[in-house]
Design a protein around this nucleic acid. Structure first.
Lengths: 190, 190
DNA sequence: AAATTTACTGAACATTGTTTAGTAAACAAC
DNA sequence: GTTGTTTACTAAACAATGTTCAGTAAATTT
């Protein structure tokens, strides 16, 4: 039943956007009453957390191929490319994971957070592997990883939240691509 | 009267956060009825836009000292430092300007947008000045500016939206500072 | 067959954005 | 000075949405 609710919610959410969906909508989609949803999820936040987990899983699946690249630097680049690609292709899911303001108080207990931590740890380990192989001069893996993450997140979130209006619409993705190349080149000289 | 409304709204908004404020709250604060607000602002969006303009002005004021630095590279660095500082110190205002999902359809007509564009243009010109003085090897001012902006925005927005839980709370700002230094060093080798 | 548990719902409530109909004061016109 | 008009404002209502509650009907247990 939770599966049924989540699938409907995620589908609605990906078509109509997060804001455009409410409890009655979701209930209607699965042909139950709104009150039924509250039998399976305490409130909208719990449903939100569950959706966040779905998004985290989708993101992990999207990143998976990059994790299998052998060379650490190639892996890092592919990882970044796929991270950004995920954000641009699934703005609603990315939003849910990294932007939406929601009570994050108890998220640490959530499997979702564990998934995110695992991915982040893998990312830092890849950076460390690059350092070990002398791809970077700096040995501060945490800061390098954080810097790269901030850049990628900045690109995706500015795009998602429509703050790139000063650039022509058809050039935004290209600019992001150029910027990604630039940061990789910059990073190589770290 | 608009001044009265805006000041009350901005004050409430900065103390209770954006989500925690509604039209009745604001009206109450200035001891008028909620309906009165609609005499001066068509709807909540218009009030939102006006608030966004206030935030843009606050941001410009915060950045102003950096604009007077003579050396372009020093100016660029001070600009970045102050941009990030603004975001960390005034998360609600930053949120309003760069994160909040709001109908941006007509914002191009807004003075607010003009302010943002002006600042962005100034930023790009500073980057260009750095290029002219051979601070960078790359000559692509637009991409350099965009890259730096994405990084700064990424840092601020991940912080604001509580996505830095994997780092101890008391180390988050320090990490951001280190990352900023790193990107500056990286940039110098562009 | 009776009692209990499970799964669900219609109706209602609270909050919040928004509209409407109306009032009362200030002002204008004669 | 009365009468019409404009201005500034409000109480009350409406609509959408999150949430709760009392009740029902089927399934299960005893």
């Amino acid at each position: 039943m939770r599966r049924l609710i989540l699938d409907a919610a995620l589908h609605l959410f990906r078509t109509k956007g997060y804001e455009g969906v409410n409890m009655r909508n979701i209930a209607e989609a699965i042909e139950y009453s709104a009150a039924t949803l509250y039998l399976y999820y305490k409130d909208k936040n719990e449903l939100y957390f569950a959706l966040q987990f779905e998004a985290a899983a989708a993101k992990r699946d999207h990143l998976l191929p990059a994790m299998e690249v052998q060379d650490p630097m190639e892996r890092l680049i592919e990882f970044g490319r796929r991270y950004i690609d995920f954000g641009f292709k699934h703005p609603d899911l990315y939003d849910l994971l990294f932007i939406t303001k929601a009570p994050m108080e108890h998220i640490e207990n959530q499997e979702c957070w564990a998934l995110g931590i695992a991915t982040h740890t893998f990312f830092e380990e890849t950076v460390q592997a690059c350092i070990d192989q002398r791809y970077f001069k700096s040995t501060d893996a945490a800061t390098i990883a954080y810097t790269l993450w901030c850049h990628a997140h900045g690109m995706v979130s500015l795009f998602i939240r429509e703050r790139m209006r000063m650039y022509p619409e058809d050039q935004r993705q290209a600019l992001a691509a150029k910027s990604f190349e630039m940061i990789i080149k910059m990073a190589e000289s770290l």
